[in-house]
Amino acid sequence: MTQLPQSTDRKMGLVIDLDTCVGCHACVISCKGWNTENYGAPLSDQNPYGADPSGTFLNRVHSYEVQPPEGHAQLIHFPKSCLHCEDAPCVTVCPTGASYKRSEDGIVLVNESDCIGCGLCAWACPYGARELDLAEGVMKKCTLCVDRIYNDNLPEVDRVPSCVRTCPAGARHFGDLGDPDSEVSQLVAERGGMDLMPEMGTKPVNKYLPPRPKDRIEDQTDILAPLLAPVAEEPKGFIAWLDKALEKL
């Protein structure tokens, strides 16, 4: 049913730390690995070893350069997957009821046997979180590893989404964002977690932690620094003559 639930018991989602992400793409690979072998149709590749390879991914890492008005530019690695929005526009546009949001934990899923592959949900998503699998003709998206997080056959430490389990930098956190006391909610409160494109009115569950301000070298000058200051502001002698001569050329 493509009507969104009035509210969900929990709001399971990810918190992604843009300060910590090193852009290694390990989450991309582990996501593809887990999700191609488990829930639903495999994530196919087209022409993977040819001249123009492409394939279905549920998680992709972009990199952005931010140039502040003053100071150095900063490089920010930016993992992006489904944000499991509270007002998910991808769900309500679905004509068959294949797309749905679970009332128990807020996870947005696709029932692949009902999906006709019209692509309208991907059109409705501002974040590019849904990709139509070319081999299978159905829409693929992040499931928040629904087949891991409740899986009693896995050791408890593995009952988190594959991307979170894999991240070597600890830049990805998983938990209930509907519970203000949860670790993820506290992290969001502490670090000023933000929404992507809030103006779209999608109310994303996933939050992004902004990069912390960079240390500036001026703030931590060594006490010996004054001794290293340039001795001669104005050149003298041979250097002064050379300077003048070169200028005249």
Binding site: D52, S54, G55, F57, S63, E65, K80, L132, L134
Partner: peptide, 20 residues
């Protein structure tokens, strides 16, 4: 979400190839 920090430019796409 980085617009308040300065001018944002796409530096590197996620993959070298194209996608859906």
């Amino acid at each position: 979400g980085l617009g308040s920090r300065g001018k944002v430019r796409a530096f590197e796409p996620p993959h070298t190839g194209s996608n859906y």
